[in-house]
Design a protein around this nucleic acid. Structure first.
Lengths: 251, 251
DNA sequence: TCAGTATCAAATGTATTCATATCTCGGCTG
DNA sequence: CAGCCGAGATATGAATACATTTGATACTGA
């Protein structure tokens, strides 16, 4: 049995290009993607385009239309808030199970290191936060947290649902007031990260779960605040831009 | 723009046949599925086989191998227990949100009807339970419950994770003692169904969540009991047979 | 005998061609 | 004038031929 594969450079190209276009908001939610048009545009045949769309469906960026074909999934404000809620629940579960079952030293070391790096993003003062680095590391933190319990199925499903929704804060922070509020909230979030890890180490499952949930509630309040403070932001930022951190499965 | 689709009878056939084979345990977990072999076997070309495998990957029954190709996902006992745990958490969230946000009369009517039908499965006495009908309806109950909150994204993710794992009890109940224990537990489960609906109607979010979680814990205990009581069952029943109720997306 | 290399076969990737379903549009008919 | 029906356009479904990658094996030389 030859466990082989043919060439896949075209599929890979199509996949990456399409993903990038979707995440950048090139296609409004609900847009139907046509194989032929994309194939011409990407200079490949329909086959790798189909393959790419299928994979993007698995990733949650597309959905299959009722009668065939693919649509760009659309997310509205309520979806984003719900996704944060869901994420809090799942991460809470992950944290609780990690505390109940115990965590390998390697994993604990891994996530502690991430938290340590998160600390460094705050620099020397409250006005010196590296938003982009923080956001990137924060995504890793959540993924590793979701992976803690050590069950393949659980890990997989939690990671899937956790991955979907998250705001990249630096993308939509127009005015000074909001920036300042966001810095404060990031400081609180960072405290919560430390507390969650502590609770896991101390094997306090209920507390770890509650903390992770509160963490998500704080994130929810932040997003609500930002969008409500300036309604133009809600309309300007495509909801899809909030989606997809660490969603890749490239090799 | 013709929102069209070509014929899909071959894909449909391949999809249903493959799904059935996987769920029936024809392929042990980890088995690699080869396009050519399946295409010959099913008397179709590789194209619809590929398409079917891609969709089964979305359903969670297959996974993509590192270097291309598809593997049958394998689930062990721990995976099944974890899946039940996860399910309880998600359904708890669904119940809580339903209680907090309120539920449309139509939806409430829908799920109340399912619970009513579940009641009828118990017949006239404790020895007259229609397991198959109960199991079927129970799956519907869970899916509708997951759909209650009314947010498309949330609904989708909850339904996805909820769908994955559940035991079909009648499939592995060999001896009289277990059967009797199972009847009792089903009665308790049915009580819990009623209580959850009541809590949602009364807008008691925390209670609804706690009840749904307890419901899952009971299910977990049942499965643990059955598998521990007769270790041969755990080895005989392919874990995959526990997967996939209401996972269809046929039209 | 072992190691390294070359060759082959097996499996998937890609392109192309044909088939088929459905949506649109125009004309016919009541 | 409205509604239905049919033909054409369009998009996806399916089949097939060809390309490419990679694992396995056999052969050769040390």
């Amino acid at each position: 049995m030859v466990e082989n594969t043919g060439a896949n450079t075209h599929t890979k190209r199509a996949l990456e290009e399409l993903r990038q276009r979707i995440l950048s908001g090139a296609f409004p939610g609900g847009t139907r993607l046509f194989e032929v048009a994309l194939a011409e545009d990407l200079q490949v045949s329909r086959t790798p385009v189909r393959e790419a769309m299928s994979r993007l469906t698995e990733e949650g960026l597309l959905e299959r239309a009722r009668n065939g074909g693919f649509l760009v999934r659309s997310f509205d404000f309520a979806d984003v808030l719900d996704a944060i809620e869901l994420r809090g629940v799942l991460e809470g579960t992950a944290a609780r199970l990690a505390a109940e079952r115990g965590v390998s030293d390697a994993r604990l070391k891994e996530i502690s290191e991430i938290v340590r790096q998160l600390d460094t993003c705050f620099g020397n003062g409250p006005d010196d936060v590296d938003f982009d680095a923080y956001s990137e590391l924060n995504g890793q933190y959540h993924l590793v947290l979701a992976a803690l319990p050590g069950s393949a199925t659980l890990e997989r499903e939690i990671a899937r649902a956790t991955r979907l929704p998250f705001a990249s804060p630096s993308a939509f922070l127009p005015d000074r007031r909001q920036l300042s509020a966001f810095r404060r909230s990031l400081g609180l979030a960072q405290d919560q990260h430390h507390q969650i890890i502590h609770a896991i180490v101390r094997r306090e499952g209920a507390r770890a779960e509650a903390l992770a949930r509160e963490h998500a509630c704080a994130a929810r309040r932040n997003v609500e605040y930002i969008f409500s403070a300036d309604s133009s932001v809600a309309q300007t930022v495509p909801a899809l831009a909030l989606v997809g951190q660490g969603n890749r499965n490239d090799d």
